[in-house]
Design a protein around this nucleic acid. Structure first.
Lengths: 190, 190, 190, 190
DNA sequence: CATGAATGAGCGTTCATTCAT
DNA sequence: AATGAATGAACGCTCATTCAT
């Protein structure tokens, strides 16, 4: 069991650093201090290992997503929670985040692949979360009457772009988060 | 000469679709309708071809960047120009844009590689452009007194995140651009 | 383990016949009745296989060299032992001998390569052995006062030249060895 | 015409340094400062260039061989002439000598190849020259009654071995030649 | 649970060579 | 006389994967 974990965490490191295709199973095994066939014993294939990693990441991600409070004083607070959650997630799992966002263009191309489905899924959930916030906020007069779809897209892109940044220093993160929330409040709140 | 162009445009298509590592020289040659060794005749190596493509893209990119008007009525107009420029660029060169942003994680890891240098360079120019805007805007009272560094980072991330989206429909783009500009105006202008 | 041996002996045959550069790894594998990647599994590279062969040969060679008796009735007997040793070695390992002497000019060019170092090493040991014989023989009056360095060089060249001859018939060898020893005795002994 | 000569002399240098197989036509062309197809224009193929070089070398070689004086005071003088001639040849054409002796094991394997034929030819001429010397010398009482075939073989090997040595300093050569002649005189003369 | 040995498929690259110009 | 463009064939090598142990 120890070995299995060693393999996944080695794979996470290397996939994040070099991408899926430029990471050989041999290098993963070596990094984990085990032999190559063990990958196939535990995960059936390189792709299986990748899928396993993605499943783990997204399980964590959706767990946290589900844990976001349903009721908040204002709609803007809901957005704050969402953004904060993504900042934290990228802080806690930088490699995993980078894998999800950048590591495997070829697998995202194939819509049938689990990888693509997870990513699509995540995009949809975020979109829904954001657009529902906006709609309610606009209806209640909390937000200015911004165009919902486009603003949703822009917020999604912003969060995505922010998560791609690797290796921020902790103090920068706090400043950045504050600036982002302030920026959005000014932009949105009536 | 025709063949050389066929090779680069085939490579652009395939690199954008599958990433550098998952694209074989054989597939590039086949797509271009020529034989594999021609790649090495014209570009020395697969890496040479990639570098050539990047050089071409960035030459185009920086040409347009340099063409942005220095003087504008307001600082916010400067920001509008920058954002518009990036939207247009991603519209005109979607594959090239995607390559720059996503196609080769392994090459970005190696700081010495031309690819990494170009990307770093581009990031620096944008950062400088944005932060100078903000500073002047704040000084003149045009902008609220936002924290310059963090806001620069957030705007950069936003533009980056927006450029990564592939295959937007044209009508969406217009709406998105409008929403983005409006969003930023509200957030920044005093 | 069997397969590894099959590979080395196939390589020895083919390197001796055609030289290093004109021998493809595919032909070695085919000759050994295995697949090509096995070469890389066992020896890392074609060069690694070559080096492995050289190491084996020279281990054998120096073992026999070290086994030459230190004390002999006369200094000429020491020379006899040396020449006889080389004849026997070339008889027992004709392919290996030919490889060492002729198979890889490019590798001998690069002084840093193990191959070049082994060859240089062997030359030095023989030179020392011969010149010490000559010095002692001359001092004791057993040999005529020949110039030591030049005579060492000529004996070395002679032995080398003799070892390069491939496919001598056995009866020729005996006659040749006798003639060589007689020739040298007449030339050297006072 | 100038270009043709540049090609041959470049080829001689590179063939001598790295052997036939490890020398690419591209490197020859580059070294000569011309383009690759010129090799095929002038020599039809890489093999043709090699053959052309060998023909040139052997033409020179046999010219000098033929110029050796038929009549000499003693038979030993004839041997002296032969050995001296080979020393001089190796001095004057070190690269060419090395090519003939060492550069192309694969081509010597194929008995039908011009290369193998030239080498065989040269061996036969030398053998005949030496053995006739020995026979006449023995008959006349100038030489001891050595076994002709074996002694011929040993002298041939010695000369061959001596010619293989690259980069001797000039003063060494003189000493070596003297030692060789003295050695042979003592060994042979009654 | 874990590995050493082995492989088929495919990789990027180099080769000598051809041919239109 | 000489070359730029192009290629078929072969190169050494790496890949993910399998299988007996």
């Amino acid at each position: 069991m120890d070995r299995k974990k060693a393999l996944t965490s080695a794979a996470v490191k290397l996939f994040a650093a070099n991408g899926f295709d430029a990471t050989s199973t041999a290098s993963i095994a070596q990094y984990a201090g085990v032999t190559e066939p063990l990958i196939h014993y535990h995960f059936k294939s390189k792709d299986g290992l990748f899928t396993h990693i993605l499943e783990t990441i997204f399980a964590l991600y959706f767990d946290r997503f589900d844990a976001l409070p349903e009721k908040t004083p204002t709609e803007f607070d809901k957005l704050v929670n969402l953004i904060r959650f993504h900042f934290r997630f990228a802080e806690d799992y930088p490699d995993e985040t980078y894998i999800v966002i950048s590591a495997c263009p070829a697998k995202l191309q194939d819509a049938a692949h689990v990888c693509a489905q997870y990513v699509a899924n995540q995009g949809q959930r975020m979109s829904r979360y954001i657009s529902e916030c906006l709609e309610r906020g606009i209806a209640s007069g909390e937000f200015r009457p911004v165009p919902v779809d486009a603003t949703t897209g822009l917020l999604l892109a912003m969060v995505n772009g922010l998560m791609r940044r690797k290796s921020l220093r902790l103090d920068e993160i706090e400043g950045l988060l504050g600036a982002v929330l302030d920026f959005c409040r000014q932009a949105l709140c009536a």
